[in-house]
Amino acid sequence: MIILEDVNVTYPGRPAIQALRGVNLKIPPGVTLVKGRSGAGKSTLLRVLATLIIPDSGKVGYPWDDAWSWDRRSLRARIGYVPEKGVAGISLTVEDSLHYLAGTRALPPGTVQISRLVQRWQLDAFKHEKLDRLSAGEMRRWLLAQSQLVEPDLWILDEPCKDLDISGLSILKAELMEYSWKSRHGEWRMGGRYAIASCHDDRLDDVADTVIYLEQGSPSAILCSSAPR
């Protein structure tokens, strides 16, 4: 279980914006959807979980033994992150950019099979295309593909359905169902596997195990599904 205790995040400025207000959450393994209006703090919550933002105060707990003291190396080796916005100004091709990110993440050679990743997300036809020239939907697929360079125990997806077509959505749902399936059947790594996604619409509702509603930086409701799917 991932635990957040009294987490506060404030963005500096005039006026300062308090994005998360004393968030207390226990997130179980499986698929969790984070919902709420724009500005409710969804992206900030996901960035906190992805260790991209360190809260001003509060505690964040992860269920893996080797994450003790937040050893960033071991923790980030478990995280796959999909940002909300696509990348811009990068002249690398789809394939080269995946190789590059695998290198910057210091992934041992041979552990990442870029070609299969490209194939899985149906990027074969664009693998020699520069990122700048991808359509919004293709960019979303690439963002999803790069997030699986590591086999994420914690898969964080910020608006993954945005610009995604039907076939892309099917792949995404199949991947998410795997997280859900394993959490339900106990077939997980030590500590469990988590997919946490923010979503404005209801396209991922049918694969969610837990739904968290955020309102003005705080959880307003949490729904847990216990029915077998």
Binding site: M1, I3, E5, I54, P55, D56, S57, G58, K59, V60, G61, Y62, P63, W64, D65, A67, W68, S69, W70, D71, R72, R73, G191, G192
Partner: peptide, 16 residues
């Protein structure tokens, strides 16, 4: 499950 709860604030002293 065994959770690892760490407190923020002193992480800048942590070195990978």
């Amino acid at each position: 499950l065994q959770e690892t709860v760490v407190e923020t604030g002193y992480r800048d002293s942590i070195r990978p």
